[in-house]
Design a binder for these strands. Structure first.
Lengths: 297, 297
DNA sequence: CTCTAAGATCAGATATTCTTATCGAACATG
DNA sequence: CATGTTCGATAAGAATATCTGATCTTAGAG
């Protein structure tokens, strides 16, 4: 008979790609976990993992099963959350995910704001890229995420929080530095720098310069926005940055000139997303209110 | 730690409204079930049932929890189904629900058709009203249902099978019996007979005569379409019937005259619905094909 | 007041799941 | 080419969780 224990272990092996580490994460020993996985495989009548030297890799059947398992675990999280809900918003531990390009700006303001509004609140935070956040959200490992909207996933509900305009960072000494506003031509520079693949802000930046032939892009693929700024400061090119991030981290460097776009400036919408079925609207309300408080500062 | 066992028992108590009968249905003893329910209540921190003399009634918290629990069990059913899927359509036991006004027409044809197409198929059938079918579908107790579409539930996928026109049944001796076609005026008769509340066909009939003031309806509220026909045969009024039902059951009675509507005749769409996440499209294809075969006869 | 039907409780039996110890295979390395 | 390391698999007994069967409690019906 299928059990949630099976699925929790399965989920963790899939996530870590490693029986041993998964066992540790589940606070059991590796043999116990192996047995549960084997039982699950027997029950479903399909091998879920290829056991390789490096660990465990999902089979095709495993990938499909994982998708279902994650939906189940997400629904279980909803059930457990719902019970706590009666005790007021954010009363239980609340697990919030945030993308890196927003976190440094928002967190230092959001956290005190929430704590002031709800003294007993217990927020757990996680900062990583959108795709991973969404996966963890859907499987119930997170309760809500702050990402760039829209996500266009029917299982998720969204709430916009703030609009985040893009600015162009250029080397202080460059020909562009004299301009009052950023223009489309500046984006056509062969030295446009972007984040590496997989960061949502890379795609958003590409959206902005859709006129640009992607093959002409500089291939740097930086890992973080801070790195990008360093590259610009060294005169290696220009880059798009989200205003929120600039406000928090990039003010000081004299070697970088920041240019706003003339209205209508390109921008993205940052907001909350959560499982539609979670029934955490009241918690979302609180977070939104805390964010609005910080914006008034 | 929450477990599926908990939820299965919970689901069954909610469904039977009775600890003892639920225990029997789960093939365990009543104390074992009581313990699991108590553990679930402790874990969720809320009482799920009022224990009364007559059995167990869901509390408000219980109702909400049941909704989540049913979604979980439905997702579990999806996971288990998906594994079987590789062995070809309808290879596992397939549980199909059908509404009463379609069953007598469709079943005698559908079953042989499916058996011919897939000799090893094992269909389990259940005939009851739409609301109950949908509930059982969502909780994974059924794999698919044949009902009147559209259902307009985002968790469900639909596939139209056939259009089912309405006909008007009038007493053979009445003034209406001479007409060639049914008309809107005939529906305005004070003796319009309908099924009791809760049958989907009642609502559809009401849709057809939306011009009619509901208070003028005869209050009979019959339990089955066969009863309705008997009432009409006895001259107690007129009624709307689905053509499919008439074809199967009502041909013979000489005291009833059946009138078709002039085109465009009012009608309903009968079709399949299943959990969008179940991944049983291939099974659905087979059932659809079997139905199409029978329609060609 | 007694009887009945429903769920709760408790002690011991049973099943499941876990841990510890050990093994075997697939590499990498000296 | 032997040897060590890193995986996951296996086996036996220990620890937990769960179930059964007997009994109890409660609330309403007769």
């Amino acid at each position: 008979m299928l059990s949630l224990r099976n699925l929790r272990y399965f989920h963790m092996v899939a996530r870590t790609g490693h029986f041993g580490r998964a066992a540790e994460a589940c606070s059991i020993t590796q043999p116990a976990l192996s047995m549960q996985i084997r039982e699950l495989e027997t029950h479903l009548g399909a091998k879920l993992f290829e056991r390789t030297r490096e660990g465990a890799r999902l089979t095709e059947a495993g990938r499909e099963a994982l998708h279902h398992a994650d939906r189940i675990l997400g629904a279980v999280a909803d059930l457990e959350t719902q019970a706590r809900r009666v005790r007021g918003p954010l009363s239980g531990p609340f697990r919030l995910g945030i993308i890196p390009s927003v976190a440094p700006y928002l967190l230092p303001r959001l956290l005190p704001g929430v704590m002031q509004r709800i003294p007993g609140a217990r927020l757990t935070l996680r900062e990583t890229r959108t795709a991973i956040l969404i996966e963890e959200l859907l499987s119930g490992d997170l309760d809500a995420v702050i990402v760039s909207l829209p996500l266009d996933n029917p299982e998720l509900a969204e709430r916009p929080l703030m609009r985040d305009p893009f600015v162009l960072a250029v080397p202080a000494g460059s020909e562009f530095a004299a301009a009052d506003f950023a223009t489309a031509e500046m984006l056509n520079s062969p030295d446009l720098l972007l984040l590496e693949d997989g960061h949502c802000f890379r795609d958003q930046a590409l959206d902005v310069c859709r006129t640009l032939d992607a093959s002409r892009l500089s291939s740097y693929g930086a890992t973080s926005l801070s790195t990008l700024i360093q590259l610009v400061a060294n005169g290696q090119g220009v880059t798009l940055l989200p205003q929120l991030f600039v406000t928090a981290e990039a003010k000081a460097d004299p070697r970088v000139k920041l240019l706003r776009f003339a209205p209508p400036a390109p921008s993205r919408m940052v907001g909350l997303a959560w499982r539609r079925t979670a029934g955490i609207e009241r918690d979302v309300d609180e977070i939104e209110a805390a964010v609005q408080d910080t914006l008034d500062l």
